[in-house]
Structure formats: structure tokens, C-alpha cells
Design a protein around this nucleic acid. Sequence first.
DNA 1: AGCTTGAATCGACAGACATCAATGCAAACT
DNA 2: AGTTTGCATTGATGTCTGTCGATTCAAGCT
Lengths: 133, 133
Amino acid sequence: MSKQEFVVLGQDDAEGCCPALLTAPLDEGRAETLAKVFKALGDPVRLRLLSMIASRAGGEVCVCDLTPAFDLSQPTISHHLKLLKQAGLIDSERRGTWVYYRLLPQMTDRLAAILTRPAGQPLTETAPAGAAS
Amino acid sequence: MSKQEFVVLGQDDAEGCCPALLTAPLDEGRAETLAKVFKALGDPVRLRLLSMIASRAGGEVCVCDLTPAFDLSQPTISHHLKLLKQAGLIDSERRGTWVYYRLLPQMTDRLAAILTRPAGQPLTETAPAGAAS
DNA sequence: AGCTTGAATCGACAGACATCAATGCAAACT
DNA sequence: AGTTTGCATTGATGTCTGTCGATTCAAGCT
């Protein structure tokens, strides 16, 4: 049933920091793994689902609260939730009749770190030519 | 030629901060816009391209340096670069015979901010039940 | 002008993906 | 046991997307 993907994302540099995206060329394997996560985020329905789950006070949402928020069939919502789960972004738990989803902050934290360039990066920085200041 | 997408991403909250993803439900319009950017990142080839461009000292890479790094045809690489550009992640400039690509750090910065939860967020935090403390 | 090289565009095609209706499964309730 | 409600799975279908070969465009040669 395919281990969670973020375990692989955990392969850090020698420094024990974040897998470099903006500071060193990504190798093929990590690119493949990372792409799966970003692909999971690359759909408006899944983004809204993730947002609804993450922003919920208590950290949990029942599927029964998610489904009616969309003009989509229940199987479709279930499918999107499955993809988010396989990407390691959320997890689910059944309690009685209902199933609750919650955010796995480790993954979003890791993505944020990956997209953050180290301070004082010697890039050309923002304004090469005609950017309206 | 479709304006850069990140302009829309710039629609901030009243507080003038980042478009909330983890703290408030994303509306349909922003979800659509954000999804396009994440979709651009949702391919291993494009991730590697972005990584190669971003990590290059000088901040620029010639296409002629990118193409031979892949087992893909030149039109395919050109296609992926186009998608990254349309997503507002990179920009290009022609100098003589060659075309140079460079990172647009505003976009990755914004994504990082979007994926970062505000400090002290009242989430259940990582260990709701049986996680090894 | 003609040629050569670097890069983008076009047209085609196979595989992936979002969506749905129908069905299956799990838990609670009568 | 039978029924109902909540969610997942299956199978089918139309659309999107990654890839290529062929072509075109742009710039610098000879």
C-alpha cells in the first residue's frame, strides 16, 4: 500500500537541513517524489479541501462537512481526499459512522522549507530591469 | 499572452499579508489560480529545471545548458520552460542567439509563505493520539 | 544571399486524470 | 435480521497533458 511519501522527502543534506530545491540541482529521484506532492496540490478542489481541513478549529473535519461545500459528487470528493492522503498531506480516522480528516503539518512545513531560499542568497533579486518599484 | 498569474496571487487579506491557505478556507477563484502554480511544480522535469535555474550562480541559465541534462527532446524542454514561465516562476531573456532563464523569487517566496502556518497556530499539532512523543 | 545553430511552435498520439453513476462496505439504529 | 446513513471502491468516459518529429523563427556566420 505504498509507504507515506514524505519519508523519502526526509532525505536531507549532509547539513541535516532541507532537501535543496533552490540552492542545488534536484536529483531525479527526489524530483519524482516532490512532484507527486505538488501534483496533489495542483487541483483547485484539493486545495480548497486542504484549506478547509487545515483551517478548521480543532484540526479535524468530517467528510460530511466537506462534501456539501462542492458541486461535485461524493465519490469525487472521496477520490480527492484519497490523493491528498497518499501525498502525505492529510490523514484520516474513522470514529463511529463518520470519518475525520486532519492536516499533517510536517508535510506543509517541509514544502515551505523547500521553497524558502536561505537568507542572503546571491540571486539577481527581484528587480533586473523594469519592475515597477 | 495572458498576464502573469502571480499578480492575482497578490490579492492579500485585509491585513496585507499572505493569502491564507492553512488558516482560512480558500475561495474558488484563488484556489484556481494557486492550483495552476502548484500544477506547474507537479512534474519532475519541471522541478529539476526550476532547481537548475534557481541554483545557478549568477541566477541565469542558458537553455543550451538545460536541454542536454535530460533524456528528452528539445521541444519538450522548451514546452516545460514555457509552463514554468506561464506560472510566473521563471522569466526569460534573449541575448543574441541564446535564451537565458532565471528564477522569479517573488513566486517561490509567496508559495513558501502560503504553506507556512503562522507561529503558535492552535492546531492539534502533530501528536493527536498515538504518535511517539 | 545562403548557411548554420539555438530555440519556439505545430500537429499528432498515448497515457494520465477528473468526473460520474452504480455498487460495496461499515456502523448505527429499529 | 433488516434498514438506513456515511464513506470508499469500481468501471466508464471525456478531457487534459507529456512527449515526439517536423517545421518555423531568430540571430549570427561565410
